[in-house]
Amino acid sequence: MRVQVHEDDFDPASELDGFGQGADTGAVVTFTGIVRNNEHGSLRAMEIEHYPAMTRTALHRIASQAQARWSLNDVLVIHRHGRLEPGARIMMVATAARHRGDAFQAAEFLMDYLKSRAPFWKKEITDQGADWVAARTEDEDALTRW
């Protein structure tokens, strides 16, 4: 298991180099989150604040829960913070498993929990000003399916 939290960008290809390698791995699922512009195209940047003392522990816990629940050979979670412009990578998860079902489900689980249980807060900076992104009830509801 590997958990990384930093400001710097990352290269998904090199992060996956050697990930989950082993005779037993038959599936690797990866997800990369990108800063999306809004419908007006007025987003200048997304500022991501986090709670450093809690972030790593929270991410480790979420990753451990995924490992306890599905048969995984490896888990990777990367989350950036700081100021990110539209098109920038925000985060990435990867799961390696014997079969794709476990890898896909665990990746979805990780994404759902990262949305609502990892201490990050997003602020949108647009041409009109700055606004904190409100948590969506759909994101909270998504946790109930697990």
């Binding site: 709670y51 809690m54 985060m91 609502s116 409100a134």
Partner: peptide, 12 residues
């Protein structure tokens, strides 16, 4: 020792 107050989290 440490109490933190914040809005609902918006990671991912």
């Amino acid at each position: 020792r440490e109490v933190a107050f914040f809005p609902p989290m918006t990671g991912g």
